[in-house]
Simulated scan of single mutants.
Amino acid sequence: MVDQTWYEKTDEIIAMHGNKPSALIPIIQDIQSEYRYLPPELLNYVAKQIGITEAKAFSVATFYENFSFEPKGKYVIKVCDGTACHVRKSIPILERLYSELGLSKNKATTDDMLFTLETVSCLGACGLAPVLTVNDKVYPAMTPDKASELIHELRG
């Protein structure tokens, strides 16, 4: 459940993009940037404010893989498992991160909401493989030990 300040922020975002159906995608992109996920309550609210059905808003948001209805941690870690990264041993990195963070394929975010761990098909940095990103910052030539060090640094 989101509080009133989230609706107020959503109103600001809507005002910035215009109160029209064609602004749906930029509006929900900005909401997700603000909160690291797209709260379903806000998506319903946006639909009403811009004059589209909730079904239409959800069909757009679920069509694009980029949108997430699940809260994400402060640090979103994406481990590349594309061909270049995979052959250069990205899976041991992923396994170390699962172990280090107490996560699994079925549990992507730590209980303290500090970390979310995801795998992606490609990060577009094949020459730097294996690669992971933290909040879109690229970390090249990763190893399991370097990944552990990075987690310790992020925890502060």
Score class of each variant (00 low, 15 high):
15 A>I: 00
19 N>H: 12
19 N>I: 00
20 K>Y: 00
21 P>N: 03
22 S>D: 13
23 A>S: 15
24 L>W: 01
26 P>Q: 10
29 Q>D: 14
29 Q>E: 14
31 I>H: 01
31 I>C: 09
32 Q>M: 08
33 S>G: 14
36 R>L: 12
37 Y>C: 08
39 P>G: 01
42 L>G: 03
42 L>M: 09
42 L>D: 02
43 L>I: 06
43 L>P: 09
44 N>F: 10
45 Y>Q: 03
45 Y>W: 07
45 Y>E: 00
50 I>P: 03
50 I>M: 01
51 G>F: 03
51 G>H: 06
51 G>S: 05
53 T>Y: 06
53 T>M: 11
54 E>H: 12
54 E>G: 08
57 A>R: 09
58 F>V: 04
58 F>H: 12
59 S>A: 13
60 V>T: 14
60 V>E: 14
61 A>H: 07
63 F>C: 08
65 E>H: 14
69 F>E: 09
69 F>W: 05
70 E>I: 04
71 P>Y: 00
74 K>C: 00
74 K>G: 00
76 V>W: 05
76 V>Y: 01
77 I>K: 02
77 I>S: 04
77 I>F: 13
79 V>S: 05
79 V>W: 10
79 V>N: 07
82 G>N: 04
84 A>M: 12
84 A>Y: 02
85 C>S: 10
87 V>M: 13
91 I>K: 15
96 R>Q: 15
101 L>W: 01
103 L>I: 03
104 S>V: 09
104 S>P: 13
104 S>F: 06
107 K>S: 01
108 A>Q: 14
108 A>C: 05
109 T>M: 08
110 T>I: 09
111 D>V: 06
112 D>S: 11
114 L>H: 02
116 T>A: 06
116 T>C: 06
